[in-house]
Computed example of a mutant assay.
Amino acid sequence: MVEDDNDQYRRKLEEWVAAHPGIPTGSDILQSGDFEILAGFVLRVVGAAGLASPIAWVDQRAVIDINETPPANPIMRIFAGLARAWSLSPSEKVGLLGVISYEDLETLNDLRIEQVPTAIAQRLIAILEIFKAINILLPVHSRADGWIRRENAGELFRGRTPLDVMTRDIEGLQSVQGYLQAEVSL
Rank of each mutant, 00 (worst) to 15 (best):
R112L: 05
Q115I: 03
I64L: 09
S89H: 02
T69F: 04
L105A: 01
N109M: 01
E68Q: 14
P70N: 06
I125P: 15
P74V: 13
P90S: 00
G95R: 05
L105I: 12
K93L: 03
I78L: 08
Q60S: 13
G95T: 13
I125D: 12
L105Y: 07
V63P: 10
W86M: 10
N109A: 04
I66H: 15
E68P: 00
A83E: 07
R61P: 08
A121W: 00
R123P: 15
A119C: 04
V116E: 07
D65E: 14
R77L: 04
R61V: 12
E114Q: 11
D59I: 14
R84M: 11
N109S: 05
P90W: 04
T69D: 11
A62I: 13
I113M: 06
I78E: 12
D104L: 01
N67G: 01
L97A: 05
I78T: 15
D104P: 09
A80Y: 01
I64D: 15
V94Y: 01
A62Q: 15
S87M: 01
A121K: 05
D65V: 11
N73V: 09
I64V: 15
Q115D: 12
E68V: 14
F79H: 08
S101E: 14
I66L: 13
V99L: 03
P71N: 02
W86H: 06
D104M: 07
A80S: 15
I100E: 15
A80L: 11
I66Y: 13
I78Q: 09
A62P: 04
M76A: 12
N67D: 10
V63Q: 14
N73P: 13
N67P: 00
G95A: 07
P71H: 02
I64Y: 07
T118Y: 04
D110E: 10
D104W: 03
V63S: 11
E92C: 02
P117L: 00
I125W: 01
Q115Y: 03
P117C: 00
Q122M: 04
E114M: 09
E68F: 08
I78P: 13
I66M: 11
L108I: 10
E106L: 15
N73F: 01
L82P: 03
A62C: 13
Q122E: 15
A83F: 02
R84E: 12
L97G: 11
D110L: 11
L82H: 01
P117F: 02
F79A: 10
G98H: 08
P117V: 07
P90Q: 03
I66W: 12
D65S: 03
R123A: 07
A83L: 02
S91E: 15
T107K: 11
L105H: 08
S87T: 08
I125G: 13
V63F: 08
L108G: 11
V99H: 03
I78H: 03
P70K: 00
L88I: 09
I75T: 14
G81I: 10
E114W: 08
P74I: 11
L88P: 09
M76I: 12
P70T: 11
T118S: 06
Q122T: 14
L82F: 04
I120V: 15
L108C: 09
D65Y: 02
Q115M: 04
N109K: 01
D110N: 11
T69V: 15
A85Y: 05
I78F: 03
W86S: 09
T69I: 13
A85K: 05
I66F: 13
E92Q: 14
R112Y: 02
A85R: 01
S101F: 04
